[in-house]
Design a protein around this nucleic acid. Structure first.
Lengths: 233, 233
DNA sequence: TGATTTTTAGAGTAATTACTCTAGGAGTCA
DNA sequence: TGACTCCTAGAGTAATTACTCTAAAAATCA
């Protein structure tokens, strides 16, 4: 029996993800939970506090995943790793979707987010350095930094990008999964040129695993039901 | 003497970029222009129509830049090219910031945007192929596709990403410029591994040109005035 | 000039929405 | 049992905001 406070977070997260924070009112959240607005405001003094608490959970999730990896990193392990990261980010995708607004509206959150990104990049650096010393990646410091920033940009944008282009992904569990895998695929593309030795051998295998099943190169632009497509049929 | 209809677009764009479309009311736009709300609604029947018209302008801007390049492409030219693209996208940054919301709210816009992205990727493909046959890039089709998608993701996310992390960029013309250059730098990082011949020789020069002047690797995380930074001073 | 159309002002409204307030139920502890 | 704290309901409100409507000024044209 989870607490009301916790249930508010869960329901808010689900609604935010589905409809966008902007389109979800506090009354709407309360109604979805079957509680009164007053009750909701007893637990969170305003809507921003809910967002703030959700960010905290998101941050905790991600930083745990990014904790210093135990044991030597292999290329395969690292890819699963990214899969986990992307999954977490997908779970809280409402956040990156309206990120700018949140940061603008809540200076305290802005500060926390800034520190969060710093930490993420810091830990990313450690991981990439480990991959380098294991002989999996071959790059200099400058390239490492560039790769890391690009990876972060890609990961943090992927979910909202996908949601923009494929709004139907919300209802289709399978498509959802496929789009997520495509995200991992793009990350692999990012690193591919730097791969060495053992990793190179597994490359095609990994790419195949994450390439979209229907072999469409840009799954992003597959047919969208409900949108009239030129030249279809 | 520009028409009222045009001035509405200009003012809206400026306000949307600065404060986010969500925080800009139609009355606010009218007031900024010194016209009445009624007048504004005479020209655009609702707020969405303004967004829609701005998208049309954005699209025109970008597609013109992406028109088939005349003459053989050199690496240097292509980089300036990206600079132009990023500048255009920066000019309409409000759009990508709230993209998901716009597409969700206006199915017609969603359809147009979808076609727009298709066209962009199509033209990008042509350009990259040209770079390959000029011997500037060395990659197979699969790598080309991956690189192109990643470039698009990076470019279309860069502005809002930056605005989230550096809200102060709005007031500081110089910082603004520096962050834009950093975007080009990241794109260069994306392609660096595939460069060949002539391009390789210019690489360091180009990187230096776009690297942030203060040699901070991640300009994104420079000190933000007004935010207390740990360990500063 | 007069007729007609385009553009503008500005008061007003209906709907939404984040949030408040009071009062009472439910659990806990003496 | 009573006292006290925690939790909940739900009616209500103040503020915002996208948008309407009427009428008049300005431009255009015969």
């Amino acid at each position: 029996m989870t607490s009301t406070k916790e249930r508010i977070l869960q329901t808010s997260l689900a609604l935010f993800n589905k409809q966008g924070e902007r389109n979800v009112t506090t009354n709407h959240i309360a109604e979805a939970l079957g509680i009164s607005p007053g009750n909701l405001y007893y637990h969170y003094r305003n809507k921003g506090m809910i967002v703030s608490a959700l960010f905290e959970a998101y941050q905790a999730d991600l930083l745990e995943l990014l904790a210093a990896p135990q044991g030597p990193l292999t290329w395969t392990i690292k890819t699963y790793y990214f899969e986990g990261l992307l999954a977490s980010m997908w779970q809280y995708r409402f956040f990156h979707r309206d990120l700018t607004h949140f940061l603008h509206a809540d200076p305290d959150l802005a500060e926390r987010y800034q520190r969060f990104v710093e930490t993420v990049l810091q830990r990313g650096r450690v991981i990439y350095e480990e991959l380098r010393s294991s002989g999996i990646l071959s790059l200099d410091n400058e390239q490492l930094e560039g790769l890391m920033v690009n990876t972060w940009v890609l990961m943090s944008s992927w979910a909202s990008l996908v949601q923009g282009l494929r709004p139907d992904a919300l209802e289709d569990e399978q498509l959802d999964e496929a789009l997520m895998r495509h995200g991992v695929y793009q990350i692999i593309c990012l690193e591919e040129p730097f791969l060495q030795g053992e990793a190179r051998e597994h490359l095609q295998e990994m790419k195949a695993r994450y390439r979209s099943a229907d072999s469409t190169p840009a799954l992003l632009l597959g047919p969208v039901p409900g949108l009239a497509r030129t030249g279809s049929e």
